[in-house]
């Protein structure tokens, strides 16, 4: 009898585990489709100052992405390309393509709370973490992601609160190794685009610095359109800068 309970328990655990995997996978798909084009507004608020940027972003799968800044005029035409784990930047003012060295990758991206590394390593949520469902409340499932053994990630764990009707998260919390909160993402205003759901309002805030956050509003989102492969080459940096 006891044995059967154990077997069922293991089976259940497996099922739950699988369900968590499934949810994370769907969440991830919602974020990127086969490919995705976004036009977004970014607002960085820090110590009473506010800065707005607008940009267009093209990405394909997990390894290729191209970003172009279109506002403010001063920064217009700056482009970024990331392929695998490398990143380049083109600045029209100086007409140079510069490879971002590893040391700069973990720096704050354009004064936001997002690091270059975040942008490059999006994929690792699926690859590097083991998901587990820890709470259900109606359609909202709380999933805890713990790094797989030897996964090269710095977070101790991440919790995601995912609405299973749309497979979008409304809050992600990032913890350090000791289990202390380091920063969180908040997502709102979910829209349906084609077969996908995507929150059009994102906000990132470090847990211990008040009055400082980064907001993003997606103005346009298009999935699975034909994005030319040309965007993901180094020559695109200059070509698509205009």
């Amino acid at each position: 009898m006891g044995k059967i309970v154990v077997v069922i328990f293991i089976f259940m655990a497996h099922l739950i585990g699988d369900e968590a995997h499934e949810i994370i996978k769907k969440l991830d798909e919602n974020f990127r489709g086969k490919n995705i084009y976004m036009k977004l507004n970014m607002k960085i608020v820090s110590m009473g100052h506010e800065r707005v940027m607008k940009m267009q972003s093209y990405s394909q799968g997990t390894k290729k992405s191209f970003v172009k800044i279109i506002y403010p005029p001063k920064d217009e035409g700056i482009t970024f390309l990331s392929l695998d784990r490398e990143m380049w930047q083109y600045v029209p003012k100086i007409e140079r393509i510069i490879k971002i060295p590893p040391s700069m990758m973990l720096q704050k991206w354009m004064g936001s709370d997002i690091t270059n590394d975040d942008m490059v390593k999006q994929s690792s949520i699926v690859e590097d973490y083991e998901p587990k469902i820890i709470k259900r409340e109606g359609s909202v499932v709380t999933i805890e992601l713990t790094p797989k053994e030897n996964a090269p990630v710095v977070w101790g764990k991440i919790t995601l609160n995912i609405d299973t009707t749309t497979y979008t998260s409304h809050k992600d919390i990032f913890y350090d190794e000791e289990g202390k909160e380091v920063r969180y993402f908040i997502y709102k205003d979910v829209k349906k685009v084609g077969n996908y759901y995507i929150p059009t309002y994102w906000m990132v805030q470090s847990s211990d610095t008040e009055g400082r956050y980064t907001e993003m509003i997606l103005e346009e989102v298009e999935y699975d359109t034909k994005i030319s492969e040309e965007y993901f080459t180094k020559s695109a940096l200059k070509r698509f800068s205009k």
Partner: peptide, 17 residues
């Protein structure tokens, strides 16, 4: 736990826990 990142022999940035 710490993560070390550097360029490997192929020039790719790689990380290790």
């Amino acid at each position: 736990k710490v993560v070390f990142s550097t360029q490997d022999i192929r020039g790719e940035i790689n990380s290790i826990a």
